[in-house]
């Protein structure tokens, strides 16, 4: 399981640029470190972060091991219509986690 934290406004006026923040618990293991037993720790990273809203992908990120553990992103989108904003993370093995935030546009 992965704990996810989202910060986004619940309401916005049409056309307003809103700030979205997303944080997920994940080691983003680089594959370059060794553990206490001297063995290489296998690479384990989230490779894709995607945000959809009002029928479209509004933000997308391809991630490399240079992104810190427990990745956090702050970015923006223009409020268009009331509806769900879906945040989705996918790791290198195709496992994914998602969280939805409902936005009301007045």
């Amino acid at each position: 399981m992965a704990t996810i934290r989202i910060a986004a406004p619940d309401t916005a006026s049409a056309g307003e640029v809103i700030e979205l923040k997303a944080l997920i618990q994940h080691p983003m293991e680089t594959g370059y470190r060794s553990g206490p037993d001297g063995k290489r720790i296998e690479r384990d990273i989230i490779e894709k972060f995607e945000v959809t809203y009002d029928g479209e992908t509004v933000f997308e990120a391809d991630l490399q091991p240079g992104i810190a553990a427990n990745p956090i992103f702050t970015f923006y989108t223009r409020a268009t219509a009331s509806g769900p904003i879906v945040f989705k993370w996918t790791d290198q093995d195709g496992e994914s986690w998602s969280e939805t935030h409902d936005l009301t546009v007045e």
Binding site: T3, R5, K21, L23, I24, Q25, A69, N70, I72
Partner: peptide, 8 residues
Amino acid sequence: FANPGFLW
């Protein structure tokens, strides 16, 4: 929000 300790 950003303090990763809050994940735990």
